[in-house]
Simulated assay, not measured.
Amino acid sequence: MGLFGNLTQGFMGNMSEVSVEELTKEYDPYLMDGETIQTGFRLVRDVVLFTNKRIVDFDKQGATGQKMRVDSINLSSIIHVSAETSGFGMDDSEINISYISSPYYRASGGVSVSEKKFEFPKKYDIQPLYKQLQEIAYENHENLNR
C-alpha cells in the first residue's frame, strides 16, 4: 500500500499492518527481556504492538514525531474483549479491550478498569486477533475468580 493509502487509513482512524521484522528493528529497545512482537500496526506515525506479554501503544507527538508517549497493557490484566466487524461501505472493524488498570487485581476496595479501542481497516481479518485476546481474557477471568 502506498503512502496515500496509509494516510487515507490514518485519517479514517484505522491501522495498517506492519511486518514483525520492521517493527522489531525500530522498537526492540522498548521490549522486555524475553518479549517478542507477535503482530503490529501503524496509524500514520503511531504504532501499536501486540507482543507475547503486552500491548504496547506508541503515540508520536509534535510536528517532528520526536516526542513519544509509550503506554502498555499487560496481557494478564485483560478481562473482556469485544469485536465489531466491518459492514457495508466505509465501516471499519474494531476490537475493544477492557483491562484492570489498578496495580492490585484483588484489592479489597475494588479495582479500576479501563478500556481501549483499536480500529482496523475493512480488509483486515480481526477474527484471529480477537480469538487470541478473548482466550487471554477468559483465562485471566478464570484465574481471578478461583
Rank of each mutant, 00 (worst) to 15 (best):
G10P: 06
S16N: 14
G2A: 04
V18F: 07
Q66P: 07
D125N: 13
D125T: 00
R106F: 14
Q66I: 00
R69D: 12
V47M: 01
F41W: 07
I100K: 01
Q132T: 12
S16I: 07
S101A: 05
T85R: 15
F88G: 13
E139Y: 12
N74F: 10
Q132S: 14
V48E: 07
R45A: 04
S82V: 01
K60M: 06
N74T: 03
I37L: 05
F50A: 10
Y138G: 13
N14T: 07
Y30R: 04
N96S: 12
R42W: 05
T85C: 09
D57Q: 14
E22C: 09
V47K: 01
V113Y: 08
S72G: 08
N52I: 03
S114P: 06
L43W: 07
K53R: 14
D57S: 12
S101T: 04
K116S: 07
L31W: 08
S82P: 03
S101V: 00
N14K: 09
K117S: 11
H141T: 15
Y124C: 08
F58L: 00
Y105D: 14
G10V: 04
N143Q: 14
G87M: 00
E115W: 13
Q38D: 12
Q134D: 11
Y130M: 01
F118V: 06
G87V: 01
I37S: 06
V44Y: 08
Y99R: 04
E17I: 10
S102P: 01
Q132D: 09
F50R: 08
L7R: 09
S108M: 14
T85H: 13
Y30M: 06
Q127W: 10
G5N: 13
T51H: 02
S72F: 03
S108A: 15
S86G: 13
N14F: 04
K25Y: 08
K60S: 08
S77C: 09
T64I: 06
T8H: 13
Y105N: 15
N6V: 09
K53V: 02
K131L: 10
K123T: 12
T8Q: 15
K123Q: 14
V44F: 09
V44L: 12
Q9A: 15
V81A: 00
A137F: 01
K131P: 05
I136M: 05
T51K: 03
S112V: 08
L144D: 04
L7H: 08
Y130T: 07
T8E: 13
R146V: 11
E135A: 12
S114R: 02
K123V: 10
P121V: 15
A63T: 10
H141P: 06
Q127S: 14
R45D: 00
G10M: 05
T24R: 11
F118Y: 08
F120Q: 07
E22Q: 14
Y30D: 05
I79S: 00
S98H: 13
I78M: 00
S101K: 03
G110I: 06
F41A: 04
I100P: 00
L43G: 06
